[in-house]
Every structure is written in structure tokens, then in C-alpha cells.
Measured scan of single mutants.
Amino acid sequence: MQFKLIINGKTLKGEITIEAVDAAEAEKFFKQYANDNGIDGEWTYDDATKTFTVTE
């Protein structure tokens, strides 16, 4: 399945899409990606669109 991350950071904005087995695997990848890029904010997930959003 495809999952999307929308980044609304103070210094980094954009979107990335990955293939993952389930939402838990996608969330783990996205949170590591955000951590690696210094993004720390509020997370939301929309199951209907398979979209995670992080907002700083």
C-alpha cells in the first residue's frame, strides 16, 4: 500500500510517498525520517487517504 507524509515544518515543507505493508510500518519510517531531519511536531493520520501529516 502507498502511504504519504505531508511535512509542514518550520524549515522543511513537502511530501514523500512510500510503499509499506501497513500504517504502523509507514508511521515508523516517517517518524524516523522526521527525526533524522530535525522535525518535531504534532502528528495526524487520515486512514481514508493513507496520509500522515506532521506540523511544527
Rank of each mutant, 00 (worst) to 15 (best):
K31C: 01
L5Q: 00
D22S: 06
D46M: 05
T55S: 08
D36N: 12
I16W: 07
L12R: 01
T17H: 06
I7K: 01
W43K: 00
F52V: 02
A24L: 03
Q32W: 12
A48Y: 12
I16C: 03
Q32N: 07
K28V: 12
K13D: 14
F30D: 00
A48P: 06
D40G: 10
W43R: 01
K13A: 13
T51A: 15
I7M: 11
A34Q: 12
E56L: 03
D36T: 12
G41P: 02
I16Y: 05
I39M: 13
I7V: 12
A23M: 12
V54R: 00
A34P: 00
K13L: 14
T11Y: 07
K50W: 13
D40C: 02
Q2K: 13
D36L: 07
E56D: 07
D40M: 09
E25W: 14
I7C: 02
D40E: 07
F29A: 08
I39Q: 12
K28I: 08
E19H: 12
Y45G: 01
M1W: 11
N8G: 02
E19F: 10
F3T: 01
T53D: 06
K4A: 07
K28R: 05
G14N: 09
F30A: 15
G14S: 08
A34E: 05
Y45W: 14
K31R: 09
D22C: 02
A26R: 00
D47W: 13
T11W: 11
W43I: 03
A20W: 03
A23P: 12
T53P: 00
W43H: 02
F3N: 00
Y45K: 15
I6Y: 11
V21H: 15
I7D: 03
N8F: 14
F3R: 00
F3S: 00
T53E: 10
D22T: 03
G14D: 15
Q2W: 14
D22A: 11
G41V: 01
N8Y: 13
Q2H: 04
Y33T: 04
Y33D: 06
E27Y: 14
D47P: 12
G41A: 02
F29G: 10
T55L: 06
A48S: 03
I18S: 05
Q2D: 14
A34S: 04
D47S: 14
F3E: 00
D47Y: 04
I7Y: 10
Y33F: 12
N8S: 09
I18M: 12
T11P: 13
A20K: 08
K4C: 01
D46P: 01
K13N: 07
F30C: 02
A48C: 04
I6K: 15
E27D: 10
E15D: 03
F30R: 00
L12H: 05
D22F: 10
K28S: 15
A26G: 06
K31W: 11
A26V: 11
G9M: 09
T11L: 06
D46W: 07
A20S: 08
K13R: 06
Q32R: 03
E27S: 06
I7W: 10
T44S: 07
V21K: 06
N8K: 12
K10T: 10
K28Q: 13
T17E: 15
A26T: 01
T44Q: 14
E25P: 09
L12Y: 08
K50C: 03
L12N: 11
V54T: 12
A24I: 10
Y45I: 10
K50P: 02
K4N: 02
E42R: 10
T44P: 00
N35W: 05
F30S: 15
F3I: 02
N35A: 12
D36F: 10
G9W: 05
D47H: 10
A23S: 04
T17P: 06
T53K: 06
T11G: 11
A24C: 03
A20T: 10
K10A: 09
T11D: 15
M1G: 14
I6H: 13
K28H: 08
A26I: 01
T17D: 03
T51H: 10
V54D: 01
I6P: 00
G14C: 02
N35H: 13
D40I: 13
T53R: 11
E19T: 12
D40F: 11
I7P: 01
E19K: 06
Q2V: 07
Q32Y: 08
Y45D: 01
D36Y: 07
F52L: 14
G9C: 02
T49G: 14
D40T: 09
I6F: 11
F30E: 00
A20H: 07
T53A: 07
E15K: 03
A34H: 02
L12Q: 07
N35D: 15
Q2P: 14
K50S: 12
Q32V: 09
I7N: 15
N37Y: 07
T11Q: 15
E25K: 15
E25G: 11
G38D: 13
T44R: 13
F52Y: 12
E19V: 05
D22V: 15
